[in-house]
Design a protein around this nucleic acid. Sequence first.
DNA 1: TTGAAAGCGCTAACAC
DNA 2: GTGTTAGCGCTTTCAA
Lengths: 357, 357
Amino acid sequence: MVTIRDIAREAGVSDATVSLSFSGHPRISDKTREKVKKVAVRLKYSPNISARALRNGGSQAIGFLVNDISNAFYASMIQRAESVANEHGYQLIIAESQWNARKETKAIETLISSRVRGLMVILTEQDPKSVELLEQASIPVIAVDTRPPGYKGSFIGNDLVATGRLAARHLLEVGCQHPVFLTASPSMKGFSAFVDLEKGFLEILKARSRKPARPPVVPAGLTIEEGAAAFSKVWKDHPEADGLLCVNDLCALGAMRTADSMGIQIGKDLKVMGIDNLAVSALPRISLTSISQPYDRIAQTAAMLIIDHLERQVPLDARLALLPELIVRQSTRPAGTPIAKNLKPAPLPLSTSTKHP
Amino acid sequence: MVTIRDIAREAGVSDATVSLSFSGHPRISDKTREKVKKVAVRLKYSPNISARALRNGGSQAIGFLVNDISNAFYASMIQRAESVANEHGYQLIIAESQWNARKETKAIETLISSRVRGLMVILTEQDPKSVELLEQASIPVIAVDTRPPGYKGSFIGNDLVATGRLAARHLLEVGCQHPVFLTASPSMKGFSAFVDLEKGFLEILKARSRKPARPPVVPAGLTIEEGAAAFSKVWKDHPEADGLLCVNDLCALGAMRTADSMGIQIGKDLKVMGIDNLAVSALPRISLTSISQPYDRIAQTAAMLIIDHLERQVPLDARLALLPELIVRQSTRPAGTPIAKNLKPAPLPLSTSTKHP
DNA sequence: TTGAAAGCGCTAACAC
DNA sequence: GTGTTAGCGCTTTCAA
């Protein structure tokens, strides 16, 4: 590997001159600079980032730990965060836990070892050790999307209680008497995200006079297949169900598939809605009512907060929960259906930010 | 930041002892090792990866450059590659070009600067400089998914000529007289992937006696919206069209949307097929015939090849193109439709690998 | 305008 | 079984 010293020797100058030539230091004459650069190209010089980072006491990088890159929302968060980081001269280092607590703690350790300047983390909430590691870290940290129990630091995510409320209100408005929440699988039900969703959903239902016979919450999962399987169960255990909030659009697509196959008229006999507002949900063949959440803004804001803290010592103590947006389609309101009159329409909030309680 | 030297001082030993304690060197007594580790934990020591990499002449990492993380297929490739890498003690460093040639060359430079041991790249094929950089790199490189013009090195990807042929054969078999290929947008049409697809598609069509009036290829794009818009054009410019190969499933979904809105009976009046076999394509409401490509195997094989080369000096000179698989659904064969008898069914290859011509 | 030299944190060869 | 020391490639201060 060719080093700065090789260039220096070849160009007949010192190491320092070479280094300063690259960094555009004014003390180097244009002639020398040109000569140095030419030699560098000829020798195919490539700077050694490790050496530079060691010397400078760290790299110009921010770490972003997500739990699943193949989730479209996390992927777009990465892209947003990366744009922001790059614009400000930082590199984004991506790590993935794959929903595995051991990988998560290892990833955090690796990130800290690579001396990133700041850390954005989407945690699995499975192991308190991760939270502990983050608390001990001597760099700015912001938890994104999920707020693990016991975590005291900065946070930015979706206001899922608001999402649950928004969904419940909508189902009531379109005339549902017995809305049911298809939530995550039992193994994931404990995540703060799903707890919050359920909380908001039930809060609105409980405000009605009529009480449901049994808790209107059924475990399902985040995939089409799990949604499909769960719906069979709902139809047996909750024969009164006439409205479905599914934990995400995929789950809703699965539930719709099973309902279709049973000859149930979606939109009429059964209202179905999801969360995520996938592109396919807008297709007329599907036309699934959904709730859109501002993942892009979350990632962008998180990255900005870290960088502002790094560059301008802005204190990093955000506790932000962004508001969701309802997208009504035919799965809850077939063409021509009026809004129920006994309930005033829920406000349709543009995603504005708000302090979380 | 606490260093190895701080631990040494605190534990009353030398730097070397601390270092060797961590690496499990046999010369350190258990007692000393314990003591050192305890002090390290107490001081919250975190090793400095830059220093280690500098000293060791490079990190234990492999770089993977993709053009779009938010594409589900690239995301799953990353996951596969990462699994393989981790299993063999390597870290995977992810970089993204976002289809931008400048970002691409910069990413390659950064990856090489961080002294990765090997490089997997999905190139945009827009700038020969990237290929040049890779040729000069003194590390093993493998091009994945796209084979840029002029690139001479190792390659593994899909056999898109075979995909084009498979699609054309299928459309003929189900009775199409005038199949049309909705390809990528004009700005992307030059990519080797789309060129290969078209080549295979036209090759089969040309083998028939009957010649088409005009070239049965229409530029569209990779999104639902582009597919939707392109179909209107097809219906005007190619009124004879009775079969559609779309460049991907999203494009096909868009085309179907427009066709639906025109009252065209998909599967009967018009056969439609896509490429990618997205999960939603299997939903009965969609039931889109598609072609599935072995992205996971590509990523896994690429990572394995690099690692085998690194660890066991296996020469890295793959030139692999993996075969696609056809998934027939109602958009080309509604329930009850027989296969045309004048053509024998195309072989339905399980994705086996083959040398590319 | 340039060169010499120190040192970032770590590892490994060599000495005890 | 443990300590001493040199040096990985780079940046930057100080001296010329």
